[in-house]
Design a binder for these strands. Structure first.
Length: 554
RNA sequence: GCGCCUGUAGCUCAGCUGGAUAGAGCAACGGACUUCUAAUCCGUUGGCCGAGAGUUCGAAUCCCUCCAGGCGCACCA
């Protein structure tokens, strides 16, 4: 829609320059926007003001020249005028707007989706929580953002792979094994003092008891160095299974779980280091190996091999990202908790050293979640075991409300998540507002069927009966859907979908309260049924991207 | 001390990448169910866009300087 108008204007400007009415100016990107004030028409363009300084002419005069040379072969434009400092305001023909309905009915679940990605391969890595404990509410936000972003890109022409990186090779796994062992001993009667770095949650006890039930007390006598690695493996596997199950119930699935351990097995880290060494990015200070990340703007160089000979987490992470690129992805997207932001410059430095563009790796920071219960903050810490798990949130507020809540803010703004509010089935909870709109439309269509009015095909209704101003507003709102999706894809901002949905649902509810869809007037009813069904389709399409259910009844 | 994020209505937040008179939701107040679902709608109240200077036709948006809050600044992950 916007694009077709932009083309007309571009042609008009070109023809003006050709005729010498305008100096030969460089044509800037033509911005078409939807004016906030409906009196300013359906679309507005600021081109005349942009050109004013280059052309050294009064913007209103330029606007006039452009309008005089505007050719509209398909008759889109009802009215065009110059306003304010030099805006071009356009009102499109009603017929043109009504064609949107045809398009929606025609494309159904595909309506709104554009082939922006053109088949590019993109990998989205998210969650990637250490398997040392169940997922908590902080992980949940990243999970939803990653999942919805993947859905969004997939719907718009990208080939998307979702991946979870399992940090199963670091110290924290040892601490996990130890924690299980200490609980094991404790249950079997020993008195234990827990070190600082051990995990205290009840899930550790469960794993310990389970080992006792299956294998008895034989690990009491075995040397700790032998037991811990085994307990690591057992606990890691149990916890990872739990994580997968929680995610699945949250509507989040992955194409691939990538193990850090596997990376080492395949010499990914040592290969990486030797190749960086050849390129001259590695130097030694006698005890440790350093990576010259300052060569690409990092504030200081980073250690890759420690004094004790072990590679750092960073070394493994570079190897991991090299591995990702080697798998043929055109774009990598990492979704991180905002507390890791300090890590970005060094990773960007690393991928540039590997010969990639900084833009090939997009990093989305998701701010931490302040968990509240009835306005009171809830303290959380994985080590102490005091946290609200994703499981508990799912059980308490449900999948749809939880997901929607995480999508109502830009990901880089802090989010207050109040359990009491989220589980209320009331107007404080916007997810129901949107779902209700969908259910209402389904209900109308059901009612129409009962009265013997099956949903008519678009071609069998008379679109010019949709003459109410609210109907025009609804149609314009639906016409904006593809534009909104495009913006969300380009900015990688999924919250825009939620805001759009709230607005669309609002416009519909308002229409519903003012106009009756199914009446004695068969022709009018048919037209309105097609209209509201189009709204239903758009709601359903958008909710599907959010991974939120679109109910037939509420 | 350095870096990143945030600061917009009483509260929680949008603001389409520089546009026209800054918008929603919640809260408060007043109205609308004999009606296709009142989980809804209609109306009213509410603003020095943290502060100051700058860039230009035009700034909540961009540059600079402050102020406040959050988060980082490991041979942890």
């Amino acid at each position: 829609m916007k694009n077709r108008l932009a083309d007309l204007i571009a042609n008009a400007v070109a023809s003006c320059t050709q005729k010498g009415l305008l100096p030969d100016v460089k044509l800037p990107h033509i911005e078409i926007e939807v004016p906030a004030n409906p009196e300013h028409g359906d679309y507005a363009c600021n081109i005349a003001m942009i050109l004013a300084s280059q052309a050294k002419q009064n913007p209103r005069a330029i606007a006039k020249t452009i309008l005089e040379n505007l050719v509209d072969p398909n008759g889109l434009i009802e009215k065009a005028q110059i306003a304010g400092p030099g805006f071009l305001n356009f009102q499109l023909k009603d017929d043109f707007w009504r064609q949107i309905l045809l398009q929606i009915q025609d494309q159904r679940e595909k309506y709104g989706c554009l082939n922006i990605g053109q088949g590019k391969k993109v990998q989205v890595e998210f969650v990637s929580a250490n398997p040392t404990g169940p997922l908590h509410i902080g992980h949940a936000r990243g999970a939803v953002v990653g999942d919805v972003l993947s859905n969004l890109l997939q719907a718009n022409g990208y080939r998307v792979s979702r991946e979870y990186y399992i940090n199963d090779a670091g110290n924290q796994m040892n601490n996990l094994g130890k924690s299980v062992l200490y609980r094991y001993r404790e249950i079997l009667g020993e008195k234990i003092e827990f070190p600082e770095n051990c995990y205290r949650g009840d899930y550790i006890k469960d794993i310990s008891s389970d080992i006792i039930n299956k294998e008895g007390k034989r690990y009491l006598t075995q040397a700790e160095e032998e037991t811990v690695p085994y307990f690591n493996a057992v606990a890691g596997a149990v916890i990872l299974e739990g994580i997968k199950q929680d995610l699945k119930d949250f509507g989040v699935t992955f194409d691939n779980y990538f193990s850090e351990k596997e990376l080492y097995k395949e010499n990914g880290v040592s290969d990486l280091l030797s190749s960086l060494q050849k390129q001259g990015f590695i130097y030694s200070d006698g005890e440790t190996l350093w990576f010259k990340t300052t060569a690409y703007g990092d504030e200081k160089d980073r250690v890759v091999i420690r004094k004790n000979g072990d590679p750092t987490y960073f070394a493994a992470d570079i190897a991991y990202h090299r591995n990702k690129f080697a798998r043929g992805f055109d774009i990598l997207i990492d979704i991180w908790g905002a507390d890791h932001h300090g890590y970005m410059p060094r990773l960007w430095a690393a991928i540039q050293a590997l010969g990639h563009d900084k833009d090939d790796l997009k990093i989305i920071l998701v701010q931490l979640v302040n968990l509240l219960r009835a306005g009171e903050p809830v303290a959380m810490s994985t080590r102490s075991g005091e946290f609200v798990t994703l499981r508990e949130v799912l059980d308490e507020v449900g999948k749809d409300a939880a997901r929607y809540n995480f999508l109502m803010r830009r990901s880089d703004s802090h989010l207050d998540f109040d359990l009491e509010v989220a589980k209320k089935q009331s107007n404080e909870n916007p997810v129901f507002y949107v779902q209700y709109a969908h259910a209402r439309i389904c209900s109308i269509i059901r009612m129409a069927c009962e009265r013997g009015m099956a949903l008519p095909a678009y071609k069998n209704m008379n679109p010019s009966l949709l003459a109410q101003p609210e109907e025009r507003v609804l149609i314009k709102m639906m016409a904006r859907y593809p534009e909104m999706l495009e913006g969300a894809v380009k900015s990688l901002e999924v919250h825009r979908i939620t805001f759009y949905l709230n607005e669309l649902a609002g416009v519909f509810h308002s229409y519903y309260n003012k106009n009756k869809v199914v009446t004695e007037d068969m022709a009018l009813s048919a037209a309105r049924l097609v209209l509201v069904d189009a709204v239903r389709i758009v709601l359903e399409n958008a909710l599907k991207i959010l991974g939120v259910n679109a109910p037939q009844k509420m």
